[in-house]
């Protein structure tokens, strides 16, 4: 990790107010990602991966509220920044690509125009040059015949093609940080690999930091420098990829690895993790939100967890492996 990280998140907490109570979606989430580094956030559905990304982007649902924390990107705290500061940063310094690329693009606007919109907003590109620059970007993400494709609508393109367009939109303003929220979900396997290669290649060229959100630990293991494991709105483990895969410290991480298929093991040998995520609306949530599913629970687990300091290998557990 470089001395000054591209993004440092400290103590981020988010709540959602719903009819049936307050959902404590994120609690004391901390991690950092260095320039040119790829960080994977891994966890099952509902663990708070996407909420973390939305909170950083400032595009949380109106019911969501950031109750605490800092997220410093290039000297600016995204959490306390004003709306206009944030509007300038969004898309320019920090960009995001989403899952379901087909619905993430405006269905009635040619894709070239959508890229040009972002260029004109952020890239200091004059109106007359924007269409040509959009074609350049389409070429950069590996779309053949980009001049013709720029005039196409999303429904005329395949899912993988749409995700390339999303990448072109996200990278239009050469951001310092790219958040990719399950970018390959819903794409076929060969396309997945191509999309990941494009992201890695473009990130490598510009020294851009990447946060890659996935529920696929195997994919994270192949693509990321560091892995942050999330469970029920907590960061349970944060370590360099190789160390995490080889020697997981948190019981949940160990279970996740055991539940990840690989070509050597048969499907029968796959373990499933017992229990499910706790209801985050409960008033009596234990300090460790995994303790109710945990086979290694000890008495001390009822004490407040160690705070996620930015350690080299952090684990939020009183009885680690």
């Amino acid at each position: 990790m470089t001395a000054v990280p591209a993004l440092a998140v400290e103590d981020l907490s988010v709540e959602f107010r719903t009819r049936s109570g307050v959902v404590k979606a994120l609690e004391h989430v901390s991690f950092a990602v260095g320039k040119g580094e790829t960080l994977a956030i891994v966890g099952e559905s509902g663990s708070g991966k996407s909420v973390t990304a939305y909170a950083l982007m400032g595009i949380l649902d109106p019911a969501g509220r950031i109750t605490a924390g800092r997220a410093v990107l290039g000297g600016l705290d995204l959490i306390s920044a004003s709306a206009s500061q944030l509007a300038d940063v969004r898309g320019r310094e920090i960009a995001m690509i989403f899952q379901n690329p087909r619905t993430a693009l405006n269905p009635i606007r040619p894709v070239g125009r959508q890229i040009a919109d972002v260029l004109m907003r952020h890239g200091n590109v004059p109106r007359v040059e924007a269409p040509a620059r959009a074609v350049d970007l389409l070429r950069a993400v590996g779309i053949t015949d980009p001049a013709r494709r720029a005039k196409a609508y999303p429904f005329e393109m395949s899912g993988g093609m749409c995700q390339r367009v999303m990448i072109a939109i996200a990278l239009a303003a050469r951001p310092a940080l790219l958040i990719a929220d399950e970018p390959t979900t819903g794409l076929d396997v060969t396309t997945q690999a191509v999309i990941m290669d494009i992201i890695a290649e473009l990130a490598g060229e510009s020294g851009m930091a990447t946060i890659f959100i996935t529920h696929d630990l195997a994919l994270a293991g192949q693509r990321a420098d560091r892995v942050v494991v999330m469970h029920a709105g907590h960061v349970v483990e944060n370590a360099a990829t190789r160390a995490l895969i080889a020697r997981p410290s948190h019981p949940y991480t160990a279970e996740l690895i055991a539940a990840t298929p690989d070509s050597a093991a048969s499907l029968d040998a796959l373990a499933s993790i017992p229990g499910s995520l706790p209801d985050l609306r409960r008033a009596d949530l234990p300090p460790c939100r995994y303790s109710e599913r945990c086979p290694r629970k000890v008495e001390r687990c009822d004490a407040p967890l160690p705070r996620p300091a930015l350690a080299e290998h952090f684990v939020a557990c009183w009885n680690p492996l």
Binding site: R90, D117, V118
Partner: peptide
């Protein structure tokens, strides 16, 4: 509340562009 408006927001497009060009036309 659709995905592509979320994309437009995440791209930092101006509220006017988002509301009129992206949302209202749809």
């Amino acid at each position: 509340s659709s995905d592509f408006v979320r994309t437009a927001r995440a791209s930092g497009l101006s509220p006017f562009t988002i509301t009129v060009t992206y949302a209202f036309r749809n």
